[in-house]
Simulated assay, not measured.
Amino acid sequence: MKRRLLDIYDALLLDLDGTVYRGNEAVPGAAEAVKAARENGTAVRFVTNNASRSPEDVAEHLTDMGIPAKPIEVSTSAQAAGTVLKDRLRAGAEVLVVGTRSLADIVEAAGLTPVDEFSETVSGVVQGLSKDVGWRDLAEAALAIRNGALWVACNMDATLPTERGELPGNGALVAALRAATSQEPVVAGKPARPLMDEAINSAGARNPLVVGDRLDTDIAGAVTAEVDALLVLSGVTTAAELLAAPAWLRPRYVAADIGSVRTPPAELEIAPQRGWEVERTSELAVSVRAAGSGHRGDEFALLRALCAVHRPIDGGDVFVRAEDDTTRDALRALGIAKTAVP
């Protein structure tokens, strides 16, 4: 039996939104992938930038979707933000909370005092996603930040994937305060190290694998933490965006969804692929043809082959010339439309 991807890593650090689930719907194959990891003795940690729910709520949400989880297996950006605040402020210091009740509870558990209005005694501001945040909350935070309070953002996710589509995330609200204060927050969540380090330490992992759907958070977070990553195309990042990404932001593996952790790693790695011939014809163009008879037209294998050839240092689009109908169909399935050299 061939070794699976989950067999060569001692922990899976799984993003949630767009990777394990979308809103209230589990991604197909997610439950089976998590079950396989546990049966294999591979540690599982659900690592999320979403700061609106407590670990208990996240675990309950996962369990309700058929993915049994315990609070101890959940690492959130809110927890990481609490650790940052605890490390930088004196015990009992007042922290203005822009977020949910669960974020305030984490601040309190860190030995600090959560408040919701500005005063001269406020030493910190912590900002996490809440669907109830309004102008008043941002105004109080702006006053505190302008007064010199330590500003910690749980994450900088501009959008939040849901079953209805992408909605404004915490990063969109952080941007409002940046515009109002001309200040920059300390970031706790991915791609910054605090959340990644907390998850790795919690799992006791020496060789973890990050699995996520976003280049700018999950994959960049893996790069920051110097660990391998699997990008899944079940959430935010598209095939075209991956192909245009700079070489340093490329994951080691790419696949359709989280179910691929049960696949041999050689079949998922960004590298030349059997069945696809990719040739660079200029700095900005490649030609592709399906090779061999009975070709299945695996579009994800094509994407891996394209990424292996096109590795721009600073990022940038490439024009792909399809030499046959099989290739054109695969590119269309990937949503890669640049199929003619300008």
Rank of each mutant, 00 (worst) to 15 (best):
M1R: 08
Y9L: 15
L16K: 04
D17H: 10
D17W: 05
T19W: 03
A26M: 06
V27Q: 04
V27A: 04
V27D: 02
P28F: 11
N40G: 13
T42C: 14
N50A: 08
D57E: 11
V58C: 08
V74G: 01
T76K: 08
A78Q: 00
A80Q: 11
A81V: 00
V95F: 02
T100L: 04
A104L: 05
G111Q: 02
G111Y: 05
G111V: 02
G111M: 02
F118M: 01
E120H: 14
S123G: 13
V125P: 02
V125L: 01
V126A: 04
G128D: 12
K131S: 13
W135L: 14
E140L: 06
N147E: 07
G148Q: 07
M156S: 10
P161F: 03
E163P: 14
G165T: 06
A176R: 09
A180K: 07
Q183N: 11
V186K: 15
G189W: 00
D197M: 09
I200D: 00
G204L: 07
N207I: 15
D213H: 12
R214F: 15
A220R: 13
L231R: 10
L231N: 12
L233A: 03
E241N: 08
W248A: 15
W248I: 15
D257P: 11
G259D: 10
G259Q: 08
E277C: 15
S287M: 12
V288I: 08
R289W: 01
A291V: 14
G297M: 11
L302R: 08
L302Q: 06
H310N: 11
T327R: 06
D329Y: 14
D329A: 15
A330S: 06
A330R: 02
I336S: 04
A340T: 15
